[in-house]
Design a protein around this nucleic acid. Structure first.
Lengths: 144, 144
DNA sequence: TAAATTTGCTTGCATAATGCAAGTGCAAAG
DNA sequence: CTTTGCACTTGCATTATGCAAGCAAATTTA
């Protein structure tokens, strides 16, 4: 379904092969900033991802170890998607995109507040958020 | 040809609407790190972009003021594509992608060296590169 | 100065990705 | 034991991408 072929050895190119599409980073954003973790959660996002695209992106991100599938504590019918350490480490990229967008695009006020806070001390913000997100890691990956 | 419709007000979503595809950031990378500036230059890159896709991406990036078309000093047959300030300011994003790739993917040695240097003092590296890139800005945009 | 080449595209067409609506199978709730 | 919710899958129309060829204007070559 998804291609795995690397176009070149360039780190930007390889990275884009993993998350360089219009949807992957939005799923990651939802997991980072909105505590979303189920298929249904992602479907509810404002951008309106199609069900099949969501399924294929979740699969791709899982294959690339950016996210992992865990069993949901509430029900076997649900699936918990969580960021791995590799996924959590995309936070600096997501933040820099926010900073750029803040400078050149029109941003909702509530998000502007978050951006302002993050800008004040980026390293501290990243550490704090990373710590929060790590709490939710699956057991297999807790040793990182 | 290209869609301009915003999927949501989210800064990540809006940013991806501008450069969230498999090619745009590679063109920007070439302009930042390889001094490429003509249509022919971009075609030569390792990933092998198709001519029509290159044309449509250049057009899209220009419409979004990320790059600008200038006349080539050597010949009227050539076109000079240059990053605007808005484009130059994508550098921190590109750098963070490098850092992430450096941690999780296999990277060519020469690029690893650049990444190492950039990591040592990121702010200084960004300032230095920004200064270099600004030298090449077109007159209309020099006032930023 | 005429012919060949370079440059920056455009066009046509095959293939692949995306979007949309409907359907399926399993788990849990009523 | 039927209905609902959840996580997908499937089929099909639309759009984007990839590839090869073509093309006009500018430049070089003969």
């Amino acid at each position: 379904m998804e291609k795995l072929k690397k176009r070149s050895g360039c780190p930007i190119s390889c990275s884009l092969d993993i998350f360089g599409d219009k949807w992957s980073l939005l799923i990651i954003r939802d997991m980072m900033f909105s505590q979303k973790s189920t298929y249904g959660d992602f479907l509810k996002s404002a951008e309106g991802i199609a069900t099949n695209i969501l399924a294929s992106r979740l699969q791709g991100l899982e294959e690339n170890k950016v996210i992992e599938k865990l069993e949901h504590p509430d029900s076997k019918a649900k699936v918990l998607y969580k960021l791995t350490q590799k996924g959590i480490d995309l936070l600096p990229i997501i933040l820099e995109i926010h900073f750029w967008a803040d400078k050149y695009l029109t941003i909702p006020a509530d998000i502007k507040a978050m951006i302002k806070a993050a800008k004040k001390d980026k390293d501290a913000f990243v550490k704090m958020m990373t710590k929060e997100l790590k709490k939710q890691l699956g057991k297999e990956n807790s040793n990182s």
